[in-house]
């Protein structure tokens, strides 16, 4: 069939069915935005994991003047510090890299992280504990390191950073699952809306379709305008969802979060652009399947 003829039929159908079309576009947009948000969160977790797991895995905090830990008797001495360093050296190759951070360095990093925050005024450099930052060949070897160092003189505590991060990732994962669940429910609503829209459209145009059939139009050309109507609405909805994600990246992540939370690796434009096609794939796929299924029932050849 000629494209201009189809375009006219589709345009006419969408206008006639205006309220339904708007409802359809909005529900496609909402479900795909949530779907996209869930994918974005997953990319975010991947980014952060890659960034942090690569850096530190275990922190060994040393006693300071005011440490309250029970095996701390005042600030760590040079001998104790060398002892800890030697123990860590002895744990190679489990300990892959290690790096000593003094109180002053810790304070400088802290100041950098909380730039402009009044909290800095309340913290003295001496309050920041010195530490060894250690990277393991395999993060699951944490217990081995902890057993060797915990309770040693001069060691205040041994922290598995990965565990801390993991709790945070769990929260993100929970959010992601939640977003996916709502996206799924909205997608279900979208399917019902597509089915209803197509059913109403098929009923409104039963005269046209019966005439088309009687002059020998093929089944596919009778169904095509209806399917294209649903697809058009889905593309518009997916476009809105894509626009929303781009806006989140531009105006929320890049403009607000990134400058304030510099120690976090944020999703890149590449991550966002990789998600966008999936919105269209899911949107168009849903529209085609739901409308095709409905037409099979309501436009019997």
């Amino acid at each position: 069939m000629r494209t201009s003829f189809i375009a006219r039929e589709v345009g006419g159908g969408l206008r006639r069915n205006f309220t339904m079309t708007v409802a359809l576009i909005v529900s496609v947009a909402v479900s795909l935005t949530l779907f996209g948000a869930a994918l974005l969160m997953r990319s975010q977790v991947d980014r952060m994991k890659g960034y942090w797991y690569d850096k530190i895995q275990v922190s060994i905090f040393l006693c300071g003047e005011n440490s309250l830990a029970y095996n701390c008797t005042g600030a760590v001495t040079d001998t104790q510090r060398n002892e800890v360093r030697a123990t860590l050296e002895g744990l190679k190759p489990t300990v892959q890299e290690m790096y000593y951070e003094s109180s002053n360095e810790a304070y400088a990093r802290f100041k950098e992280q909380f730039k402009g925050s009044p909290i800095i005024a309340n913290v003295a450099p001496s309050a920041m504990p010195e530490s060894f930052r250690v990277k393991l060949d395999d993060p699951s070897h944490y217990d081995e390191v902890a057993a060797a160092l915990e309770g040693k003189p001069g060691v205040e505590s041994v922290q598995d950073q990965r565990k801390l991060l993991e709790r945070f990732f769990q929260i993100l994962h929970g959010l992601q699952t939640f977003a996916l669940a709502i996206a799924g429910a909205m997608l279900f609503v979208t399917v019902l809306l597509v089915m209803n829209t197509v059913r109403v459209a098929a009923f409104a145009r039963r005269r046209e379709t019966s005439i088309m059939r009687s002059v020998g139009a093929s089944n596919s050309s009778i169904r095509l305008p209806f399917i294209l109507e649903a697809v058009t609405a889905a593309v518009l909805g997916a476009g809105l969802a894509a626009g929303t994600l781009v806006a989140v990246k531009q105006y929320v992540i890049d403009a607000r979060l990134q400058p304030n939370l510099t120690f976090i690796a944020w999703v890149t434009w590449q991550d966002v652009l990789a998600i966008l096609p999936w919105l269209f794939v899911v949107g168009i796929g849903t529209a085609v399947l739901a409308s095709g299924f409905t037409l099979r029932r309501y436009l019997k050849g």
Binding site: R207, S214, V215, G216, A217
Partner: peptide, 28 residues
């Protein structure tokens, strides 16, 4: 095919109603 009740498309002009028979089978 012709029926007692004509079966024309009410929103299309005479020209378009006649052309419909060609459009649905893909004539240019």
């Amino acid at each position: 095919i012709v029926f007692q009740d004509f079966r024309l498309l009410p929103s299309k002009s005479v020209f378009d109603n006649v052309a419909f028979g060609m459009e649905v089978i893909g004539k240019n």
